[in-house]
C-alpha cells in the first residue's frame, strides 16, 4: 500500500490538547472529531487538509493525555499517515491500534518542508519526497507492532483470542 499526499508540518511537542481539545471529547465519532482536528493549534486548521494528505510532526508528537480521540481525529480529518521526529509513547500505541500509520524518522524530519508532495510505503518504510527528489528510510515498524497490524489491528487480535 502506498500513500500519496501533501505534507502539512506542525512543530515539536504537539500535545493531545492541540490535536483535539477536551471540550470536543463528548463524542467518539471520528468524523465529528475530525472536523475539530488541530482546533487547539489554530482555529479552522483542518480546512487546509485534503483527504489523503500527510501530517509531519516534530519531536514527541502526541504528548499529553491518553485520549484515543487524538489519532481518531487525525484519521477523521482524512489523514492516514503521520511522520514525526519521535512520538509520545501512548500516542504511538494508540495510533497503531486505531490503524493510523506512524513513521519515526528522527532528524531527517528537516528534509520535509510544508506542502512537499510525498509518497509513503509503510511496508518498506520508504518515504519519497517528490518535491525534492529525496528518499528517506524510516525506522522499521517493531516486530510486535507488525504482528498486530498483520492481524488487522488490536480489535481483531483480541477477537481471535476470546472466540
Amino acid at each position: 500500500m502506498i500513500f500519496a499526499g501533501k505534507a502539512h508540518k506542525v512543530g515539536d511537542h504537539i500535545d493531545t490538547d492541540a490535536i483535539i481539545p477536551a471540550r470536543f471529547l463528548v463524542t467518539s465519532d471520528p468524523f465529528e472529531l475530525g472536523r475539530k482536528c488541530f482546533e487547539g493549534l489554530e482555529q479552522g486548521w483542518v480546512n487546509r487538509v485534503k483527504k489523503g494528505d500527510i501530517l509531519i510532526g516534530g519531536k514527541n508528537f502526541g504528548c499529553g493525555s491518553s485520549r484515543e480521540h487524538a489519532p481518531l481525529a487525525i484519521l477523521g480529518a482524512g489523514i492516514p499517515v503521520v511522520i514525526a521526529h519521535s512520538f509520545a509513547r501512548i500516542f504511538y500505541r494508540n495510533g497503531f491500534n486505531m490503524g493510523l500509520v506512524l513513521l519515526e524518522i528522527g532528524d531527517y524530519i528537516d528534509k520535509i518542508r510544508d506542502q512537499d508532495q510525498l509518497e509513503v510505503s509503510p511496508g518498506t518504510g520508504e518515504i519519497r519526497n517528490l518535491s525534492t527528489g529525496q528518499i528517506i528510510n524510516s525506522l522499521p515498524v517493531p516486530e510486535f507492532m507488525a504482528e498486530i497490524l498483520a492481524m488487522g489491528g488490536l480489535v481483531n487480535y483480541v477477537r481471535e483470542k476470546v472466540s
Binding site: P71, N94, N97, V158
Partner: peptide
Amino acid sequence: TGMGSTDIAAAMALGETWFK
C-alpha cells in the same frame, strides 16, 4: 501506566497486556 481505550478494552477482556 496510561494507555488508549482500545488497549484498555483488550486488558478488560483478557486480563493481560504487553509492555516493552
